[in-house]
């Protein structure tokens, strides 16, 4: 019996996964070390790594589809990472029970600011229609944001891109705000990341401190829930 070779497609797919995964993990690891050495916002791993990989993808004349085909499993790990936030939230349950009214006020103020400033600034630079609506839910984590975008008449795919842009911007802006505002509580330090920059901000908050990370994780989830529940109301208001 002849030895069956793996189909070229399969070998291709495996090669793609191996190549792009190694490139991604390798650059991320390097960028993280660089950031640990020189913690400047413009050296943030979430900014440096995609820029370098983007350059490689373009230089090799590979396409985005090739790249994403090889690294989809990394994006999928965002699911288990979301579940993992149950652990820091549970560990900080005493803190949360004591201070939930403060967090609630912060979440409502932050969500309103996100919607109002997005709408106002978009109008200011002449954006309108579905594009402007797609910008409104971008502070939330992707699944929530896409849900809300669909509800209010935006384009969920575009919102997903804006969510990611917000994540990169937010991780950097959060560092700048922390350096300038003297915030007394870990509560405020965590909440600004969770409300302003969803998972990417929460990941950054987790690096700053365990309490900050737990607060950011909780707030990220609750802001998403509150907004999904309020989306029909918002849609009615926008019509």
């Amino acid at each position: 019996m002849p030895i069956t070779m793996p189909s070229p497609w399969l070998a291709d797919a495996a090669g793609r996964v191996l190549l792009w995964s190694l490139v991604t993990i390798g650059f991320y690891w390097g960028a993280k070390r660089l950031y640990r050495r020189w913690p400047r916002w413009w050296l943030s791993p979430l900014l440096v790594t995609p820029l370098l990989i983007g350059a490689i993808v373009l230089a090799l004349h590979a396409s985005y589809r090739d790249y994403i085909g090889g690294t989809r499993w990394l994006i999928l790990l965002l699911g288990p990472a979301t579940v993992a936030f149950a652990i820091p939230i549970y560990e900080q349950r005493g803190l949360i029970r004591r201070h939930w009214p403060v967090l609630l006020v912060g979440m409502v103020a932050g969500s309103l600011t996100a919607m109002l400033t997005s709408w106002g600034l978009a109008t200011l630079v002449g954006l309108d229609g579905a594009l402007r609506l797609s910008l409104l839910p971008r502070s939330m984590s992707t699944p929530f944001a896409m849900e809300v975008a669909g509800d209010i008449g935006g384009i969920p795919d575009l919102t997903a891109v804006f969510v990611v842009m917000t994540g990169i911007a937010g991780a950097a802006i959060g560092d700048l705000i922390l350096a300038r505002l003297s915030l007394r509580s870990a509560l405020a330090r965590g909440a600004l990341f969770g409300v302003g920059a969803h998972g990417a901000g929460t990941a950054r908050a987790h690096q700053i401190g365990a309490t900050e990370g737990a607060v950011a994780g909780l707030v990220m989830v609750l802001v998403g829930l509150i907004n999904v529940l309020c989306a029909p109301l918002l849609a009615a208001l926008l019509r």
Binding site: T24, I25, Y28, P45, L46, T49, P50, I53, Y67, I68, T71, R72, L74, I75, L77, L78, A81, T142, A160, V164, G167, I168, A171, G199, A200, T202, A203, R204, H206
Partner: peptide, 9 residues
């Protein structure tokens, strides 16, 4: 977790 965001970016 930031690593998982890289392909999304």
């Amino acid at each position: 977790m930031l690593l998982f965001f890289v392909p999304a970016v």
